[in-house]
């Protein structure tokens, strides 16, 4: 096990996992929040778009989206994001992770909207705030604070799901594990190294989100 740690750049592979996860999380949070707002908006068309988006991407396997981003989007439709293949697949992997997890973030944030008592919205409208104003000043801040725990779970799932990016060749932790298993055969030690690596990434995050959801909870 010692020479596996010294012969392979495992830290570099986990750094790639971290880059994928951080960029994917940012993308998913932005897109997911926009979708959640669309799903509670008074405009029927926007609500329909938001609902369809969630239903399509929540029910499509991530592996399929990943492979389709390269085989379909890059090679057949010619939507290449870089001439260098490694850069192209990294960018597509971030996009796919964002697009896929945005559906889950959307539902998490929407569940946060449901924690805001309807009286808050009525009070906001009665003092003359527009829909946009009441959303950004009154509803969204409370909704976000109420949805921290489910959003945290989604982000942890995103970190682990980032391993799927290895099917299109991103050299992340899962790709490194495939290399080591090929060269050194799959032993318990190899799996342990990568399992521990992911626990180190996700466990503190989970604790942080639990603590935050308690501290930031709206007292009612």
């Amino acid at each position: 096990m010692g020479d596996i740690l010294s012969n392979y750049d495992i830290l570099g592979a986990f750094w790639m996992t971290i880059k994928l996860s951080v960029l994917g999380t940012v993308g998913a949070l932005v897109l997911g929040t926009v979708l959640a707002v669309m799903r509670v908006s008074p405009v029927t068309t926007l609500r329909a778009i938001g609902t369809s988006y969630v239903n399509v991407f929540r029910n499509t396997p991530l592996t399929l989206l990943m492979v389709a981003s390269i085989l379909g989007m890059t090679y057949i439709l010619g939507m290449s994001l870089s001439d260098d293949q490694q850069t192209n697949i990294f960018r597509w992997a971030v996009i796919v992770l964002s697009v896929y997890h945005a559906a889950f973030i959307c539902e998490a944030v929407r569940s946060g909207f449901n924690t805001v008592p309807v009286g808050q919205a009525e009070a906001a409208r009665s003092i003359g705030l527009s829909f946009g104003q009441s959303l950004t000043q009154v509803i969204l801040p409370q909704a976000v604070r109420g949805s921290i725990a489910p959003v945290g779970s989604t982000i942890i799932a995103l970190i682990k799901n980032s391993t799927v990016a290895s099917v299109i060749g991103v050299s992340d932790a899962a790709g490194m594990m495939a290399t080591i298993v090929e060269n050194e055969t799959g032993t318990f030690g190899v799996f342990l190294i990568f399992a521990v690596g992911f626990v180190i990434l996700t466990l503190p995050l989970g604790m942080a989100f639990t603590a935050m959801s308690r501290r930031l909870a709206v007292r009612r």
């Binding site: 492979v67 290895s166 790709g175």
Partner: peptide, 23 residues
């Protein structure tokens, strides 16, 4: 294929090769 001997071998043989890896 990701992590395969062939993929590792060609990276060594042709440095800087534009390699796409799949599952």
């Amino acid at each position: 294929v990701t992590g395969s001997t062939s993929a590792q071998n060609v990276k060594k043989k042709v440095p800087g090769v534009n390699l796409q890896e799949f599952g």
